[in-house]
Design a protein around this nucleic acid. Structure first.
Ligand code: FES
Ligand code: FES
Lengths: 144, 144
DNA sequence: ATTAAATAGGATATTTTTATCCGAAATAAA
DNA sequence: TTTATTTCGGATAAAAATATCCTATTTAAT
C-alpha cells in the first residue's frame, strides 16, 4: 500500500508530534529507535518532510526535528504521504494504465476508484494529533 | 497498490477469459501484446497462475493458455491477487508492524482496516466474467 | 575562537522487483 | 519419426527501492 519510506515518514511524524507537544526536539537516532527503522534512511525521509513543510528542523547543537505545537492538529496524513510518495495513489490507475481516466477506464476503474476515494478521504481527514493521542494513551503502538 | 506482476496477472487473466469464451487458446506473445506487458515476464506470471489453478496451460504445438469456459464466472480477482502477491494485503499492517494485530494496533489500524476490508470484499466479489464483459462491450480497456 | 552536537546532502552499497535470455520438455501435425 | 510450436524453468540482467557511509555546514555553549 505505502512504501517503506512512507511508513517511516508517518511513524516518525507521529513521534515528533508527541515530543513536540512535550516541548522536546528529537534526533534521527531517537526517532529511529522509537519507530524501529534504519536511522540514516529515516534521516533522508525527514529531510523530505522538512522540504515539504510538514516538520521543522533546527541545525546545530541542541537542534533536532520538531513540529510547531499549534500545527499538530492541522497536519493531515495526506500531506505526509504526498511529500514522500507523491500523488500516484490518487492519480495512478489500479491496473497500471498510463493514467486513470474516466473516458478510458481499466476493467476495475469504478470499483477501484471508490476504494481509493475512501483512502483519500481518510488520509485527508486524519490528523497527526489524533494519532499521537492514541499513542500517548497506549491505545496504539509505533513498533514491534 | 498491486505489484506490476499482479497488474499483469489480472489483465492477462481477463484477456484469457475473453479468448477462452470464444474457444481460443492464447500464447504469452498475444497476451503481452494485448495487455502491453513484457512478454517473458508475463510468461512467468502465467506459470504462477497455472500453479494456483487460476488458468490452464496446454503444452506443445497448438497449445497455449485458457480458462475452463464455465469457470470464468466463478474466478474472483482475489484468487489472482492471492496467487501472485499472497495475502499480505489483508494480513500486513498498513504501517509495517510485524503483523496487523487488534491487540497491538498501529496508529492507523482501525481506519486502515475498514478500507482494506472494502478492498477485500471487492476482490472477493468481482468475477473475471464481469470484467471480461466490459472489455468486450468496449466499456473498459486493457491497455494504453 | 574553539568545541561539541546536530542537520544536509552526495556517494555508494544492498536488496527486491522487474525484466530478459536460453535450453529442456511436451505435443500435435505432417 | 521428424518437425514445428509451445510451455516450463533456471540463470542472468537491469532498474528501483531500501539502506549505509562519510563529509560539509550550521549552531549553541564554553
Ligand atoms: S483507469 Fe484504472 S483505476 Fe481508473
Ligand atoms: S496494526 Fe497496522 S493496520 Fe492493523
Amino acid at each position: 500500500m505505502f512504501s517503506k519510506a512512507c511508513e517511516y515518514g508517518i511513524k516518525a511524524s507521529i513521534f515528533i508530534a508527541i515530543s513536540s507537544s512535550e516541548g522536546k526536539r528529537v534526533t534521527p537516532k531517537e526517532i529511529a529507535e522509537e519507530i524501529n527503522s534504519p536511522q540514516a534512511f529515516t534521516a533522508k525521509i525527514l529531510q523530505a518532510l522538512v522540504k515539504h513543510d510538514v516538520i521543522n528542523s533546527v541545525k546545530g547543537a541542541y537542534g533536532g526535528f520538531e513540529i510547531d505545537k499549534n500545527q499538530i492538529n492541522k497536519i493531515k496524513l495526506a500531506q505526509i504521504v504526498n511529500a514522500i510518495d507523491g500523488d500516484k495513489i490518487y492519480r495512478g490507475c489500479g491496473l497500471g494504465l498510463e493514467k486513470c481516466d474516466e473516458n478510458h477506464p481499466c476493467p476495475v476503474h469504478d470499483k477501484f476508484k471508490s476504494i481509493r476515494n475512501n483512502l483519500q478521504f481518510m488520509l485527508e481527514h486524519t490528523t497527526l494529533e489524533e494519532l499521537a493521542l492514541d499513542i500517548k494513551s497506549g491505545a496504539s503502538f509505533l513498533k514491534v
